[in-house]
Design a protein around this nucleic acid. Structure first.
Length: 365
RNA sequence: GGAGGGGUUCCCGAGUGGCCAAAGGGGGCAGACUGUAAAUCUGUUGUCGACGACUUCGAUGGUUCGAAUCCAUCUCCCUCCA
């Protein structure tokens, strides 16, 4: 994997990330395809929204259909017929979000499957075995994501474990083209963030995730953590803010030097009847759009906006027709991809701040 | 023509004397959603000058301190027999 920063505008960076499956222009937004699919849309449709790389998930794919099966299929790319880049998350976040169904020790995490209640053990070594079998272009280290709020001591523990596990991941990771990213933890404590950044970067990964943010803390707190990290991070490596993807947060992240983002937000809220527009979020399932036959966004070039009106989309959603959530999903993904493209373009010409100002003049988070 | 069963708030449906403006589900309306246990979850859903009042359980009349619940008549629907 190769990464190069082409332009800088303040702390904002415009770069190129090369993987075995192509070139990725950064800053980039990565749609989430947890179970080897971006929910409800086909790979062609995902590609047409402008996505250059998507996510898959170790935890889910290990439980079903099983990483060995995917390996037999020729790897995740072939299995799901996605020929651009893929990044797999390690399951660290599931350990966090599945809450009481797991037990964490220094060795790893013993957890109960949410599918059938069976017990499983994830260690850094096991997670590497799974991620290598999946064969994504980028694999994430197995980390421990501390919740918010959390006691200082608890966050220290998670941070130290994350470092120890990162070492073990690194030692057991070996793959012809897959890159392994480290993950920086440290909750909302500046000193722990600094310490984690130091520890993880000492291991020298080809890229770094910033984890444990956007887990319920106020946004300014997240931005503060990014500001703490920005000057400490290797300028030649991609920085990935994990789990962030609301339009306003994308701007704030890029402004603080982030190169990569992923988030379920656009696809999830799409399925729940909300779409992004330049003014903010529009709950298209609401009654006020029943007789509104304009596109979601008149200036949007996505398949949905070129072909359908709000009233029709609302009807599909109310009638529980799958096309409804497919159309809103396509629009939301396209919206974020277009937004990122405009951000990249603005950085190239040194107009990021203006673009951000213009954007927030309209956009109400 | 005879025998039986039934009409409940937008819909389906529980409720057989007070704890019932009436369970539950659907539908409607709204809110939430940030490394996906999510096409999920939460709230709300008679009216009003609303910590109270008023109207509502096919219609009308009655019994009772009190009726969606008991009685009478009417009306409509369903099933079976002729």
């Amino acid at each position: 994997m190769n990464f190069k920063v082409l332009y800088k505008d303040g702390a904002a960076r415009r770069g190129v990330l090369e993987t075995a499956h192509g070139q990725i222009d950064t800053p980039v937004f990565m749609p989430v395809g947890t179970q080897a699919t971006v929910k409800t849309v086909s790979p062609d449709e995902v590609r047409d929204t402008g996505a250059q790389i998507i996510l898959g998930n170790t935890y889910h794919l290990y439980l079903r259909p099983g990483h060995k099966l995917i390996q037999k299929a020729g790897g995740l790319h072939q299995f799901m017929n996605w020929d651009r880049s893929i990044l797999t998350d390690s399951g660290g976040f599931q350990v966090f979000s599945l809450g009481p169904m797991r037990k964490i020790t220094d060795e790893g995490v013993r957890f109960k499957s949410h599918l059938d209640g069976s017990f499983h053990m994830f260690t850094p070594e096991k997670v590497m075995e799974i991620e290598m079998a999946l064969g994504a272009d980028i694999a994430m280290c197995f980390d421990e994501c501390a919740p918010y709020p959390a006691e200082y001591k608890e966050v220290v523990k998670a941070m130290e474990r994350t470092t120890a596990w990162a070492k073990r991941c690194q030692e057991s990771h070996q793959h012809p083209y897959q890159s392994l990213f480290g993950i920086i933890q440290g909750g909302v404590f500046p000193d722990l963030r600094r310490e984690s950044a130091r520890q993880i970067q000492d291991l020298d990964f080809p890229g770094y995730g910033i984890g444990g943010l956007s887990v319920g803390e106020p946004k300014p707190m997240m931005y503060e953590m990014l500001e703490v990290l920005e000057p400490l991070m290797d300028v030649n490596k991609p920085r990935y803010l994990m789990g962030v993807g609301s339009p306003d947060c994308l701007f704030e992240g890029v402004e603080r030097g982030i190169d990569m983002f992923d988030c379920v937000l656009p696809t999830r809220i799409a399925r729940n009847g909300t779409v992004f527009v330049p003014e903010g979020k529009l709950v298209i399932r609401n009654a006020e759009y029943a007789e509104d036959f304009r596109p979601i966004d008149e200036n949007c070039q996505c398949y949905t906006c070129r072909n359908f009106g709000r009233g029709y989309i609302r009807h599909l959603l109310k009638a529980n027709e799958v096309l409804g959530i497919r159309l809103t999903t396509i629009h939301n993904l396209h919206f974020l991809q277009t937004l990122m493209a405009s951000i990249r373009q603005a950085i190239e010409v040194g107009r990021f701040c203006e673009l951000k100002r213009e954007f927030f003049k309209k956009y109400q988070p």
